[in-house]
Design a binder for these strands. Sequence first.
DNA 1: TAGAACCCTGGAGTGCACTCCAAGCAAGTA
DNA 2: TACTTGCTTGGAGTGCACTCCAGGGTTCTA
Lengths: 126, 126
Amino acid sequence: MSLTQTRYTISEVEARTGLSQHTLRWYERIGLMPHVDRSHSGQRRFSDADLHWLAFVGKLRATGMSVADMVRYAELVREGAHTFAERRELLERTRRDVAARIAELTDALGVLDHKIAHYGGKARST
Amino acid sequence: MSLTQTRYTISEVEARTGLSQHTLRWYERIGLMPHVDRSHSGQRRFSDADLHWLAFVGKLRATGMSVADMVRYAELVREGAHTFAERRELLERTRRDVAARIAELTDALGVLDHKIAHYGGKARST
DNA sequence: TAGAACCCTGGAGTGCACTCCAAGCAAGTA
DNA sequence: TACTTGCTTGGAGTGCACTCCAGGGTTCTA
């Protein structure tokens, strides 16, 4: 186990994740991040595990999951293995929402294609 | 051409569209509705054409299009046939956004399934 | 004709997810 | 050491899409 694992400043994390420093601090404040390590003077030093978590959070965001639900999920993770069932439920509910949203968007896409064709447009199937 | 075409009060439209009366008035105020007909005393009387427009607006909403863009589209419709090209562009841009969003959601769905499987969950493919 | 239910307006309020600000301390470079 | 750039905090501000309120007029039913 190495004692010199990589630690990132907040601006490095901003560059890697695309999340602003403001948002990163806000995520920590609302409990969406496990507590981030600090330097001797109190500056944040993110780990690879933090980056990994942030990537997963990004996927949850992409699903349209609310920040409140993401915070709930993060709490469950902190509480340990006995919350597996509730975590799975949260994820399955989100999965159903995503599937429904895809169906809704697919339907809207059809309406759009129809309308574009009506305007003599070049609707591409690709 | 009948002189007794159906005219709906705002609460009837609320019941038919699921949009609140507040939202219907707000849509009109911001220019998202062609001007709705009024009774002699000033109460709104929606037509079937209004309902039809509202249904289309609902589809645009479902695409995730912003209200500002929907208002822009409504303006173009009011301006007449010479705005066909711009309308088609707006719709095609929206179409690309929707396709990208579907791809993003599909990707997130995969991540979710992977995670759910990890929790020993019953991820259904249906 | 009385009462209940419905509709009108302009403007204020809400919830979400950021986004920014001020004031001050910390880190890196000439 | 001086200077610039970066990081800290609590709290305020922003933009979007509604959502509601007060005060008053209208329509329907008994």
